[in-house]
Every structure is written in C-alpha cells, then in structure tokens.
C-alpha cells in the first residue's frame, strides 16, 4: 500500500488511524462472531440454524422482506416519477418526508404502526371487520418493512430519472411512439438497474430490521417471529451458541447482499456512462 506520488502529507497517519479504528470497532468484533460459531460443533451448529423454529423465522424474514421490497419497488417508482416530473403544491415537503423512515427511530415507528393497525386503532378498526388482520400477523411484519424500505427505491431511482435526457423521449414521441410505448422501450430500460438496486437495498435492510417489527409482529414462535428476534430470544435464554449460529447465517447473507448490491451499482453506473457516451 503506497501512496502514488503526492505532495500532500498525512497519508500514513490518516490511513493508519482509519485501519486501526475500523479493525478494533468493526472487523475484529465481526471476526469474533465467526470464530465463535466455528468453535461450535457441526451438529450443534446445524441443530441451531436448521431447527423448525429457525427455519420458520428465516421464511418469515425473507418472505416479508421480499414482499415489502416488491411493494416499495412499485410505489417507489411511481413516487420518484411524480416527484421528478410533476409540479404540485407541497412537492418539497413530500420529497423531504420520503426520508422519514431513515430519521425516525425504529422503536417509534414500531409502536406507532402497532397503534394504527391494532383492533381499536384508526386503521385497524376499519380493516378487522373486513377480515384483514394486520397487527400481530405476518402482514403486520410486511407493513412495518414497507415503511422502513420507502426511501431506498425512491432515492435510487430519483437521480436516474433526473438525469434522463429529455431529447430521447422527444425523439421517441416524434417518431410516433405512444407514451406507454416510450415508457416501456425507452424509459424503463434506463431505469431498471436503479430499480433493482433500490429493491435490493430495501430487501437487505428489511432482512435485518428489528425495532419497527417486534412491536407489530406479536412475536409468536413459528408464526410471527423474525430471525433477528429469534437471536434476541436465544440470548435472553443464555443460549449463546444458538444465537451465534443464527447470527452467522444472517451475517453471511448480509455480506452476500452487500457484494451483490455493489456489483449492481457498478453495472448501473457503467450503463449510465455508456448511454451518455453513445
């Protein structure tokens, strides 16, 4: 690792501090988790990560995260389009509000959504007579994850829509393409890498999400227990081995998603740059 001919000072000390701080705070603790799970016997590890309760928790975590990310992909695309292309009163406020799920502590979101969707809540009192039960069901988990995931799709798609050259659409229109045809053949191909990235970001965040979900889910084992909650439950019963094994599984999946998302973003950036050069 050598700095390539620069007159600026401070490379050694800043990189040294960065690496030391990163190692102490992040890398060593994370490595400790893998070290600990490797020290479990194969049978013990398997019993923890493949118990019916753990499998049900993964199913719920991944299923609800996937459903929530899909909902966000759809509504997020519409919201980004409306924010970029249309002008209406209050647009600035709506645009700022999109970041609310980043700024609002997850526990606050959790109790608020529960209060809204509970039997006597503002929304629950109308939905439950219709047979739609949200609080304390897998649907409730999905609703909380939709809330958490809103900014990801909007904020990845928005800059791509802003960068689109209007000339391309004008050309398509002047060549006789209908608006729908233009969207399908001209706009969508430009936007989809960002849309998939936003979907993946929302999904990745949702898989690990805890605070906003634990209140609305009801936390029934095998039914509404998400994987991060199962880790907490195991810890509270002093079952460190079980908690560590499940955490290692989640961690490997998170790293896989991180690498996948980085790849997607590089692909999207290349496409965008290629489109501009052409």
């Amino acid at each position: 690792m050598a700095a390539s001919r620069s007159v600026l000072p401070g490379f050694g000390i800043t990189l040294g501090c960065t690496l030391a701080y990163l190692s102490l705070l992040v890398l060593i603790p994370l490595a400790g988790l893998f070290w600990k799970s490797a020290s479990l016997g194969g049978a013990e590890f398997l019993a923890a990560v493949a118990s019916p309760r753990a499998l049900a928790a993964y199913r719920l975590s991944f299923g609800a995260s996937f459903a929530a990310a899909l909902v966000n992909a759809g509504f997020g695309l519409v919201l980004a389009w409306v924010l970029v292309r249309y002008r209406f009163p209050g647009r600035g406020i709506v645009d700022a509000l999109v970041d609310l799920p980043f700024a609002l502590p997850t526990a606050v979101a959790g109790i608020t959504l529960t209060a809204l969707f509970a039997k006597n809540g503002w929304l629950g009192q109308w939905l439950e007579p219709l047979g739609i039960f949200v609080a304390y069901t897998p649907l409730g988990v999905t609703v909380a994850l939709v809330f958490i995931g809103i900014p990801f799709v909007v904020r990845t798609v928005q800059p791509v829509l802003e960068d689109l050259e209007p000339e391309i659409e004008e050309a398509a229109a002047s060549l006789g393409a209908s608006r729908f045809h233009t969207f399908r053949r001209v706009l969508f191909p430009a936007v989809w890498p960002a849309l998939v990235t936003g979907f993946a970001l929302a999904f990745a965040r949702s898989v690990g999400e805890y605070g906003s979900v634990v209140f609305i889910s009801g936390n029934m084992p095998l039914r509404t227990e998400i994987a991060p909650l199962l880790i907490v439950t195991e810890l509270e019963q002093w079952n460190y081995a079980g908690a560590t094994a499940i955490a290692a599984v989640l961690l490997v999946i998170s790293f896989g998603l991180l690498l996948g998302i980085n790849g997607l973003q590089r692909y999207g950036a290349r496409r965008l740059a290629g489109g501009r050069a052409a």
Binding site: T18, L19, L22, V26, L27, I28, P29, L30, G32, L33, K36, A204, V207, G208, E209, Y210, G211, P228, L229, I231, V232, L235, Y240, A243, T244, A247, L250, L251, S254, F255, L257, L258, L259, N262
Partner: peptide, 24 residues
C-alpha cells in the same frame, strides 16, 4: 476493499451488531 469494509456496519442487522459485543 477498504471502502466496502467501511460500509459493513450498514449491512449488518442491528441485533447482530449488539451480539458481536456481547460475545467479546
């Protein structure tokens, strides 16, 4: 690689982040 490593804490579930310190 360093830039990716800096992003790691955002990829980790909050619960797992707490757990690594309990294990240490």
């Amino acid at each position: 690689l360093l830039v990716t490593a800096i992003d790691l804490p955002f990829a980790v579930s909050p619960v797992v982040s707490g757990l690594v310190f309990v294990l240490l």
